[in-house]
Amino acid sequence: MDALKFIQINPEINTNILLPFVWVIVGLIAFYAGIKNLRDEENPSRIGTAVFWCSFGIVTALGTWLPAKVSGALVIIMCLPPIFKKVKRGRVDDPTKEYTKQTYGKIGMKIFIPAFTVAIFSLFFALTSNISSMFCITMGVAVAVIVLMCYNKDNKPKVFLDDSERFLSLMGPLSMLPQLLACLGGVFTQAGVGDVVAEIVGKVVPKGNVNVGIIVFAIGMALFTMIMGNAFAAITVMTVGIGGPFVLAYGANPVIIGMLALTSGYCGTLCTPMAANFNIVPVAILNMKDRWGVIKNQVVVAVIMLTVQICYMIAFK
């Protein structure tokens, strides 16, 4: 795959210029959301909401240069408003149906072009260069913004910023969950949680049989995800605890094993009411009578896919 990569930049440009640039922009977007909510008189909790988005914005934008202790303190400050339920939605400026119909009439199917730009950029540069994918995504977003501005004169910079705030507020503090869970996984690993898990599993599962290791790893991911409700929470501990010592240590392909373990975990997500935003919230939104109505339709597919993935991992390890 490396032969294709004809665009080569000095890796230091990635770490020292491009990535910090990306995080400053992301931080500013979040900071804008915080300030907008601070000034929004319709928001029932202006200060809490602003503290949440602004501290996230600062730690993201400046994390490259801040001492780790200061970043850690900012993360703790960021966690406080959601814990006390002080992050709220303010004024909502959803586009009206008339407006979106009218713009669709004008733009039509061409709207798919900016919708796919980001992924095309990220895929193209991943194949042809060593530029950080975070920066490629940023370039894709920039191009999509320009295309949208050309399509419709109403799309001014403020519209993009306000729309991003609208979606951030809609997603709320839960949008931070993946990053916080990844952070938790890192702290777990540093504290040696994975080693303890490996020791426990080692008492039950014989070391040395890779296929047994794969089966335990995949089913363990699915079960652990069902209990935690989130594959991201499970993957770090399970990979360090089972994937590493029982599968990868015997020469299995880390790309296939590591990645398919995550989607094996997703099979667990499909089966658990703990993953409320995927399996329970839709029941409410769609006014369904059966609380398990979504999960019931997912279990068969989840079991088939878990089996498929285990076979695939064993065959292509």
Partner: peptide, 22 residues
């Protein structure tokens, strides 16, 4: 906490994409 949160900033790239989602 600080080191791990900053190291996992890639998770926040969705914020960049939200710039066009809405």
């Amino acid at each position: 906490v600080g080191t791990n949160f900053v190291a996992n900033r890639s998770m926040a790239i969705f914020v960049m994409v939200l710039l066009i989602t809405g």
